[in-house]
Amino acid sequence: MRLKPKHISLLVLFVLIVMAPLFFPSGFYYRVGALIFINAIAVTGLVILIGYAGQISLGHAGFVGIGAYSCALAPVHLGISPVFAIALGAALSAGLAWIVGRPILKLHGYYLGVATLGLGILISMVLANEAQWTGGPDGIAVPDLGLRGLLRDWGFRVSAGELWYWLAGAVLIAGAWLALNLFDSPTGRALRALHGSDVAARTMGIDVPRHKLHAFVISAVYASVSGSLLALMNRLVTPDVAGFMHSVHLVTMTVLGGVGSVLGAIFGATILTALPQVLTVFHQYEHMVLGLVMILVMIFMPDGLLPSLLKRFRGRAGK
């Protein structure tokens, strides 16, 4: 049987996730890996929104925040387990995206950018200001997921870093699988069509507002799950996860790697997450490097890193 691009992408991702630990010099890198995967989950959602449907969001960290604070607050106040808190956060994010999505997604370009930006900032402002619930700017502790204890009872001893590496890796593969399914499906084609030509898509019978909304809701759920995992891994969450800078990070990762492609976006998440972690020596210059990378990639590789590199590689192979 001939392998489809979807299966190749998933295989590459799987092999990379499984093989990477062989090259880890220390246990610290499991945490870096887990952080990369957690960001990549949110970014995969943005591939559906920005890459497929062509709609920008500068406020998706707001949904990351909802996912994260659900895991901090729901177990304490509602007495539900953290696993259900993840689902609750996803449902809340989806619900909010559903309500605000329809009016917001009527907007185009900068107007859409600034409306989503405002939405994200309002969410992060609530999280920072409602200190009696959220602990305010200092953040709040998050209950233990309990998975490590469970594994220990069964006789498996894993470090927290290892556990989160494999858990986030598994969720990422599932998320990538869903996004790749969508790409080559009736809905995915409709999204890519309205990205290419809004007018033509409408005359093809595509209900454009409905499809945009679905992409927005799906991407909000990805962001929320990413936030939940981040909170549960760090056992602490601060309003920064919902902040403007985190939104910008996520969009940059999405566009950096290659905005249409799931694998490219994961590549972008890897670079942008790993760089500051690995190059701690350059901590002082972190912002300068990030800003410079954003500018240079957009100018010289407008398709994103991975597609541009692949094109160059193919061009050379063809000669």
């Binding site: 084609r189 069509a193 595509i206």
Partner: peptide
Amino acid sequence: MVGHHLQEAGATLPDLFGLPSSR
């Protein structure tokens, strides 16, 4: 294929999960 939208489009979730009906 996009021109076939009205004949093929239905639900988003089956498309997301790659169900046999969608494929």
